[in-house]
Design a protein around this nucleic acid. Sequence first.
RNA 1: GGGGCAGUAGUUUAGUUCGGUCGAUGAUCGUGGACUGUCACUCCAUGGACCCGGGUUCAAAUCCCGGCUGCCUCGCCA
Length: 449
Amino acid sequence: MRKISQNIEDCSMNLQKKIPVEKIFINGLEDVFIAGWIQQVRNLGGLKFIQLQDRTGLVQIVLPKKKVTPEVFGIDYQEGDIIAVKGTIVENKSAPKGKEILPSEIVVLNKRAQEYPIAIGDKIETNIDKRLDYRFLDLRDRKVAQIFEIESAVAYAIQEYFMKNGYLQFFSPKIVGSATESGASVFEIEYFGKRAFLAQSPQFYKQMMLVAGFERVFEIGPVFRAEKHHTSRHLCEYTSIDFEISYIDNQRDVMNVLQGVIGYALQKVQKEKAQAFEELGASIDSQPKEWPILSIPECNAILLSEGKKLDLYEDLDAEAETIIGKHVKEKYKSDFVFVDQYPWDVRPFYTMKDDNDPRLTKSFDLLYKGQELTTGGQREHRIDILTQQAIEKDFKIEDVDSYLQFFRNGAPPHGGSGTGIERFVQKILNLPNIREARLLPRDPTRLHP
RNA sequence: GGGGCAGUAGUUUAGUUCGGUCGAUGAUCGUGGACUGUCACUCCAUGGACCCGGGUUCAAAUCCCGGCUGCCUCGCCA
């Protein structure tokens, strides 16, 4: 026994064959082999309890002095130690869920070298910035880990939806040579003596792929924004879910895809991560079949009735988004609303203008629970109009020329959208700060770890 | 980029109003001990802190100035 605990190589246990904690009480197992870290030891003298945690859950190991070997009983177990346990499932009324593990053998795979630098669990809530400094330990808290179990499932559901619907997944460069889309907000880097930038969006590459003939493309990847915003909903680096499709009649086709993919992801994650939602005390409300669409003029009318006056050609501010979100929740029982026909003044030059009012566009925002989740719309594919619009937005033609080049050779009518996955997860779980939904956030002051 | 508030043990929190009673509170945690059914146990003992720099003063956790850091908020966005 002692030899084993000192040398894993000699261990008779095959660690890769350990059983996930969530699976030990199903399938009528009698003997189990599990491994994880010690979440807590409760020592009652002649009786000890170890709460053992692995990725999938928590289980109680019971150590009655008279029923386990002196070796197993005598080990100085501490919170954070990594142990492997062979044992028998025993039933006991006072055990959690009525079942616990009586160990025949315990191997300490690694002892902790210090106490935790942050508090894990419900007793004390450590501040978010300190938790982020020690994110690897913060994630030992199931409530934190479940956020990323959900994010992982969301990402997978989205990929699955797109793949099933004939989209091409592609990967665009994140080091780019020009920063035309939104000059002020890019990070500048040095690239072998040349100026380069971190991609602020895959926008141009998505469109390039459509000109190439792929018709339906998507990418889930990092984007970078050099904005010194101090808010609970912005990051300097986040993960963008982007898609772009050809042969659309108008922005409604983009909305349909968006409702399809977001709706699918919600439905799937709710089903597959039911346990996580339960542990987090979160749930997803059912949504109407058709998500409401409100034009900017319609939104203005609603805002006016709520006592808030906004210029027709102005962007919705945070307060306005909240009001609209509340309105559609009450009226349509929907957490989602498309705000359509955004003003031209607040949209990029490649946005297609509205057919009837050139001060509006064929673009929209998708609001989720009163906050902007997605921006999308139809893009201008006609080279002469696109060129004109670039000039209108004060671009020098030579700066956008490589982009305009796509459209000189024929581009189909097209559109698409971009969604921040962290914001999506934040809103699904009603997290107070987007940093909770980003594993290792980058903001204007945080660069580590 | 603007505005507001804050920084006290490993974590968290009281104390700052009105400088002295602070040799700094409580919880959690660590260490030592007791306990055979705990439920992020209980009980006993014990350990550990005023963000950094300058200033005012007989005296600074407390007041002033600067810096750094954090939180909230607005703008902008996803």
